[in-house]
């Protein structure tokens, strides 16, 4: 465990709290992509299958895994019940089928081992790398976002971005290298680069998030 990884995980945790806080404070899920949330739930359910047999790994990992699965399920529940009036299927239209299909194909082509767990793990890593696309696509269609929503997206993107120095650290200092996670993590961070740029040049300077 190193600092980058802890900061990454904390950033991930913070992003979830910001999202729940956004819905509570605005009493609405406007601007949030239900499709992206459903993809994340698929990511966590397929990657964290091992909570049922790796209790010994660490209490930290197991509890974080449970928190990610439960909080995302809870978010989807809220979006589909309490806040469903703000859902706009006309805007949230990204073809998620291709993302799931592409991740499935990569998982079958490049798992570390041909076991159900390893293929699902690889699937979750590839799917996570593109799960934000419906959300970013929605942002592009509306052209603007509430500030709290941009904080959520920043924290979520920072999580994988912070894992990159963690992987470098582990590669040099521990001889640990995980090519699938690293390549997918870099792709994931690149997908955020436009968003990060606008967040930095506008939101952090007190302006509203608006696309040029």
């Amino acid at each position: 465990m190193n600092l980058f990884r802890i900061l990454g995980d904390l950033s991930h945790l913070v992003s979830i709290f910001i999202l729940l806080q956004k819905m509570r404070s605005t009493r609405s899920c406007a601007g949030i992509s239900l499709r992206t949330q459903i993809l994340y739930l698929m990511v966590y359910c397929t990657r964290y299958l091992d909570i049922f047999w790796t209790f010994n790994a660490s209490l930290y990992n197991s509890s974080m895994k449970l928190v990610f699965i439960l909080s995302t399920a809870y978010t989807i529940y809220l979006m589909r019940t309490v806040y469903k009036t703000a859902l706009d299927p006309q805007i949230d239209t990204f073809a998620t089928y291709y993302l799931v299909g592409g991740a499935g194909l990569l998982a079958v082509l490049f798992p570390y081992k041909y076991t159900v767990y390893e293929v699902l793990w690889s699937f979750s890593i590839w799917l996570e790398s593109v799960a934000i696309l419906p959300q970013l696509f929605m942002l592009q269609r509306t052209g603007e976002a509430e500030t709290i929503t941009t904080h959520y997206l920043f924290a979520l993107g920072a999580y994988r971005a912070l894992y990159i120095p963690n992987w470098l650290y582990r590669w040099f200092l521990e001889g640990h290298f995980d090519p699938i996670a690293t390549v997918a993590g870099i792709i994931q961070t690149l997908l955020y680069s436009d968003f990060f740029y606008i967040y930095y040049t506008k939101v952090l300077k007190g302006k509203k998030f608006e696309l040029p």
Partner: peptide, 10 residues
Amino acid sequence: EHVVRGHDEL
């Protein structure tokens, strides 16, 4: 050979 000692990351 790549080294993956289990998936210990989140």
